[in-house]
Design a protein around this nucleic acid. Structure first.
Length: 643
DNA sequence: AAAAGGAGCGAACAG
DNA sequence: CGCTCCTTTT
């Protein structure tokens, strides 16, 4: 018996049992998209068409990836290593082949802030006046270029006479930035994808190895892929044609990350023999909820005309709650959850921006409703955590300049800005990392600074030794961390300051996270410290998920692909959903509408929409009048009921 | 060199 | 409003 073939309609069955060749699946919300993907993976493996290692399945968010992996595991008892986000898949490939593109396998991944700090340093080095263009503008340009697999030369050759001077500046910074990252043995998020594509283009043997290995490539949320991601998929499947993509243009919500809807046309062009499969039967929501969703999305012009069907009853009306302010909105939500007898795991609260979670968090806490916030201000975005992570990174990768700068004077050890500038200059002249530059005499340093630098270098060397012990399993990860926070004096320096009590707590929390950290079944061959730091960088869940039942709080972006019996979609106000920064052009407004559509279609039985007439803290700490969202007006009254 | 005080500014979504 | 950056003071 093949249980994974049960309960499938003819279209789903066609997709699940599809074997070789390309396939494009249009899957409406709730039509069993994830189900099709996971079951096809099971079918490929179970019917011996593929071993788990022949599968390459990618998604966009960690939440979606772990969801998918879990489902495969439940059905099969094991799951392929490469069921992950694009970024984490690329990081894995790069760790295996780093040297071929001039990096070491222990490279560091820079997040947005670290990347920006690097760009700022380059501004100084190149003596660029930030009146002409700001570091963050440059960062956006570079990021966008990487989404399109374009390098510094692109800016130099761009024939936009309209702002050619600026293009030259950007090109110079872009180039210097890449050189600096190379010296640091570091990559930013965009590089993770680009470097893999470059690796595959430059090293035919390597590409062939992966082509043979990844016999079947599957892509979730295909409508959200960008140009460089398509290049990657295309390189892998050029010969086999085994590219299986699932998407829905009504759920395209990542244009800010360079999503290119033209990728659907590219697919049709490059895989002319492809089959198409359309899933338009919704199995998730009651008719009222689905009709409301259909009515909203029908207002978008740029879409293929389609409408989801259901065989379900009308069910409950969609409830609409106007609240006085965000606090009473939160109170309403908390109270409603308490009143209903429902498993908390089946309840979710969605919002447009992470900032909205605060009021909700507080109210749920007060009413003792167990809850979990996904995404948002991350644990390791905190200063104290970043500092410790920086020590760890530095132990693993001595050349990581960002981490070096971050902790060279933490805790204060008499090596200030002036001294750092001397060191920065030396490194710049010698084209080496700060660590390398510090190994020999640095001109201009006072005796105190010189001594302090030397002892810092010795310290890092010691930590490096410990780090290799951790990776060789001779030392526990938690012991390693403990060693660092005590030996460096960092924990004690926090304890001396009464304001830093919370920080001490957080550091101890990190220790406990580390002691319960273990490699996932798919990471057996990875080194534990590398894996630990990588998961911190890529924002994958570091903490073990608690077994306790809880309400889930997340942004609409994270909600995609999930479903809950009871859904609260809050903050339905002009300026929030649609977001104020999307009101100018029709395209981003339509994306906001898709976001709203995604939220509505997550609900199975029970959907609550709410908005606040007054909301504090929307912009620069002022009170705002809330005007209810235009999307609410797009839902016909027959499906809705105000309460 | 480090701490304290003041000016200025910016702020979605995710990896 | 809260954070970062810059200036001033000790």
């Amino acid at each position: 018996m093949k249980p994974y073939l049960n309960d499938l309609n003819p279209s789903q069955l066609k997709a699940v049992t599809h074997e070789d060749g390309a396939m494009l699946v249009f899957a409406g919300a709730g039509s069993g998209k994830t189900r099709v993907l996971t079951r096809r993976i099971c079918n490929l493996i179970d019917s011996k068409l593929a071993y788990p290692e022949n599968i390459f399945a990618v998604t966009f968010t960690n939440k979606a990836a772990s969801e998918m992996k879990e489902r495969v595991f439940t059905m099969l008892g094991r799951s392929p290593r490469y069921v992950s986000t694009f970024h984490s898949a690329c990081a894995k490939i790069l760790r295996e082949n780093a040297r071929l593109i001039g990096f070491r396998p222990d490279f560091t991944i820079y997040d947005q802030k670290e990347s920006l700090a690097t760009i700022k340093r380059i501004f100084k080095n190149l003596r660029i006046n930030s009146k002409e263009i700001t570091p963050s503008e440059v960062q956006k340009k570079i990021d966008k270029a990487k989404n399109n697999y374009l390098f510094a030369d692109h800016f130099r050759e761009a024939d936009t006479f309209y702002n050619q001077e600026q293009n030259f500046i950007i090109a110079d910074i872009y180039q210097a930035y890449q050189e600096e990252l190379q010296v640091c043995n570091a990559m930013d998020f965009g590089d993770l994808i680009c470097h893999v594509v470059s690796l595959f283009i430059l090293e035919k043997d390597t590409l062939n190895r992966y082509k043979n290995r990844f016999k079947y490539v599957l892509v979730d949320e295909y409508q959200d892929t960008n140009i460089v991601q398509y290049k990657l998929l295309n390189l892998l499947t050029k010969d086999s044609k085994n590219l299986f993509v699932v998407g829905d243009d009504d759920q395209s919500i990542y244009s800010f990350r360079g999503a290119n809807i033209g990728n659907i046309d590219s697919f049709k062009r490059d895989y002319p023999q492809h089959q198409v499969c359309i899933l338009d039967m919704n199995y998730r929501s009651t008719k009222n909820i689905l009709d409301a969703a259909n009515a909203v999305i029908a207002n978008n012009d740029a879409r293929e005309i389609k409408s989801l069907k259901t065989e379900k009853d009308k069910g409950l009306p969609v409830y609409l709650k106007p609240a006085e302010c965000e606090v009473s909105e939160a109170r309403f939500i908390a109270q409603t959850i308490k009143d209903k007898n429902i498993s908390l795991n089946e309840v979710a609260i969605f919002y447009r921006t992470n900032a909205q979670s605060r009021a909700l968090e507080e109210e749920l806490y007060h009413q003792s409703i167990p809850h979990k916030i996904f995404g948002g201000q991350r644990f390791y975005d905190r200063k104290e955590i970043k500092n410790i992570i920086a020590y760890c990174r530095l132990a693993l990768n001595n050349d990581d300049n960002e981490s070096f700068i971050r902790v060279i004077n933490v805790p204060t050890r008499g090596f200030g800005k002036t001294s750092l500038n001397h060191l920065l200059n030396k490194a710049k002249n010698e084209k080496t990392s700060l660590f390398q530059a510090a190994l020999t005499k640095v001109d201009g340093l006072g005796t105190r600074a010189d001594k302090s630098l030397n002892s810092f270098i010795e310290q890092i060397k010691r930590y490096s030794l410990l780090a290799s012990k951790v990776n060789n399993k001779e030392l526990e990860l938690a012991e390693f961390l403990q060693n660092i926070i005590e030996d460096s004096g960092y924990l004690n320096s926090l304890r001396e300051n009464t304001e830093d009590i919370d920080r001490v707590e957080n550091v101890l929390e990190l220790l406990s996270v580390a002691s319960s950290f273990s490699l996932q079944n798919d990471e057996e061959e990875a080194q534990i410290l590398v894996a630990f730091l990588e998961r911190a960088s890529l924002n994958s869940a570091l903490d073990q998920d608690s077994n306790q039942e809880h309400v889930s709080l997340m942004t609409l972006h994270l909600a995609k692909g999930l479903e809950y019996e009871m859904v609260f979609l809050c903050g339905l106000e002009e300026g929030i959903l649609p977001h104020s920064r999307s009101l100018e052009d029709i395209e981003s407004l339509e994306e906001e509408r898709r976001l709203c559509y995604v939220g509505i279609t997550r609900a199975k039985q029970n959907l609550y929409l709410s908005y606040a007439r007054n909301r504090s803290n929307t912009s620069y700490g002022t009170w705002n009048f809330g005007i209810c969202s235009r999307f609410l007006g797009e839902i016909p009254e027959e499906y809705m009921e105000a309460i």
